[in-house]
């Protein structure tokens, strides 16, 4: 596959980089990344991955664009209110880079469909806002041996970690079970600064680019935390849990499953 002059120009800032170069750009153009959640985290991640020329981007979200989303979900516009988020996200990505393929999944990701969907992708970004989904994505990625980026945001803070099969801990090594509903604050109740979503979502995109191109060190075995008020980034070393229910030799979870959906989330949809 040879670059066209247009591609050389579009991706020139990547190709000039020693760590990316022509080979890395070709890897990006052949890569398949799935973004689950077209919200605060998925929005910046999707824009940067599309701009980077990731050849195939899948985006999953069952929601429609709401006015309250626009403070941080920069892939959607005011004119998109009421449209499925995946459609609005697809249009924005293709407007930036018509060369890529975008696959939309306008549906909830559940234990029924997750394995079939992630199987088609090289790297998965968890941009969801709820713990049942985060555990589901973790379990499915571990079981399907797919690398993924976990991220969370609240108020002025964010966190990030990367799971690579066979390396480092998974999300369930760190957090055993989802917390009961309403005992841990969510963005809806506690608020979040839009730019924090941007920072953390971009870091997720960065991890995907690094995984695909092989550049640098991934955030495996480490949790990165960001405190915007103190303007501090920290990385905390994470051990593996040798008794982990999904990624250890003592595995008790052999198939993805759904935790009960909190009723208030359903009402708010």
């Amino acid at each position: 596959m040879a670059f066209t002059n247009e591609q050389l120009e579009r991706y020139s800032r990547h190709i000039i980089l020693k760590e990316i170069g022509p080979k890395g750009q070709k890897k990006l153009m052949q890569a398949r990344v799935l973004i689950i959640g077209a919200g605060g985290l998925g929005a910046p991640a999707a824009l940067y991955l599309a701009a980077a020329g990731v050849g195939t981007i899948g985006i999953a979200d069952a929601d429609v664009v709401d006015l309250s989303n626009l403070q941080r979900q920069v892939i959607h516009s005011t004119a998109d209110i009421g449209r499925p988020k995946v459609e609005s996200a697809r249009d924005s990505m293709l407007a930036i880079n018509p060369e890529i393929d975008v696959h939309t999944y306008y549906e909830y990701i559940t234990s029924e469909n997750i394995s079939g969907i992630i199987r088609d992708y090289d790297f998965i970004l968890d941009g969801t806002d709820n713990f049942p989904a985060k555990f589901l994505i973790n379990d499915a990625c571990v079981l399907e041996e797919k690398p993924f980026s976990h991220a969370g945001i609240i108020r002025f803070e964010g966190q990030l970690m990367t799971y690579v099969p066979g390396e480092g801990p998974c999300y369930r090594c760190v957090f055993k079970e989802p917390p009961p509903k309403d005992l841990v604050p969510t963005c809806r109740e506690a608020g979040v600064i839009g730019a924090v979503a941007g920072v953390i979502g971009c870091l997720q995109a960065m991890e995907a680019v690094k995984y695909i191109t092989g550049a640098g060190d991934l955030l495996t075995g480490r949790l990165l935390t960001y405190d915007a008020l103190k303007m501090q980034f920290r990385t905390i070393r994470l051990p593996r849990d040798s008794h982990c229910a999904v990624c250890s030799g003592e595995r008790t979870i052999h198939a993805p499953f759904d935790y009960e959906l909190p009723s208030c989330d359903l009402k708010n949809r």
């Binding site: 670059f3 002059n5 050389l8 120009e9 020139s12 190709i15 000039i16 170069g21 022509p22």
Partner: peptide, 13 residues
């Protein structure tokens, strides 16, 4: 047929 910085990029590729 290209201009800076694609000139160098094309040679590099």
């Amino acid at each position: 047929d290209v201009v800076c910085p694609v000139t160098f990029v094309k040679a590099k590729v």
